[in-house]
Design a protein around this nucleic acid. Structure first.
Lengths: 150, 150
DNA sequence: TTCTCTATTGTAAAAAGTTACAATAAAATT
DNA sequence: AATTTTATTGTAACTTTTTACAATAGAGAA
């Protein structure tokens, strides 16, 4: 159970506590490279801390997110997953066919710079999904609209 | 019940149908300027179509979003609201104190341009909330970290 | 108008997420 | 090691969201 130990001091400095429940959740998040849904985290973390409850899970995810240790990833209309804050990466996802693509690093860096410059906030966009139309669906939707017009 | 009529042809062109349930939901979304949570929409739309069910509501919100007529707005870690697709606007929200701010229009335009250039997708970021730290909380968190270090 | 096709809805049960409040247990202090 | 403080958890009830499947009803064709 050493998986969350690197956070202990950071928590204490802010008046928070480390608990086996939080350790288990952090371990689950760490065991995958990417993001997990709350349900997946519950399943995974329960192997380490069998009595973990849903209430604690959701409260902990909220806690970790508010304090910058984890980040919420909005996967689609209302689906949310979580991951440890590590490197930033965004995707674009086609709202029509679902195809997705990684946003190039340079593009993402520029986006965050522009947002921070424009607002004064230290914007932390750890992992987000953008919606739009991929090139194939841009054509398809254009055809629909032409059919409508003509 | 004319509130969603401007969409009828657009729906038909893509093989979809207009229904009184969809009309009621569109009317509810239109009656406010901004976004509404599913629960608020249900309450509001039920005044027009009293037998509207939750299942239909959620399916319709999903349908409208997938087809570009409405957009999901992620308000916080897991809260989602919906609004009609109109003008784009983003906010930045401080993950620590919750204070939020409108992202200037020019900043937002640049962000979308950069994302579209970088990916080839037609990115549609109708209304989003960015998280980060406002200037006050940037200082506060810095103080915590100094306490930890020294 | 009537018929036909199938997109859309209602039903009902299950799953996911939230909340109030009392009980527990980290961790600083003595 | 015992004490104290209060952050954190479990319980249990509740609300929100999702899903399978049968029933309904738009909208084009006859």
């Amino acid at each position: 159970m050493t998986c969350g130990s690197y956070l202990i001091d950071a928590l204490h400095a802010r008046g928070f506590r480390m608990t086996p429940q939080r350790m288990a959740i952090l371990h689950a998040l760490r065991s995958v490279g990417g993001h997990l849904t709350p349900t997946e985290i519950l399943l995974n973390a329960s192997r380490i801390y069998p009595n973990l409850t849903k209430a604690t899970l959701y409260r902990t995810l909220d806690f970790l997110t508010r304090n910058g240790f984890a980040a919420a990833v909005h996967l689609g209309d209302s689906r949310v997953a979580y991951e440890l804050v590590q490197e930033q990466h965004h995707h674009v996802m086609c709202r029509r066919c679902g195809r997705s693509l990684l946003v190039p690093e340079g593009t993402l860096r520029k986006v965050c710079e522009i947002l921070s410059e424009g607002t004064g906030y230290a914007v932390e966009a750890d992992h987000r999904v953008w919606f739009g139309l991929c090139s194939a669906c841009q054509s398809a939707e254009r055809r629909s609209d032409e059919k409508l017009a003509g």
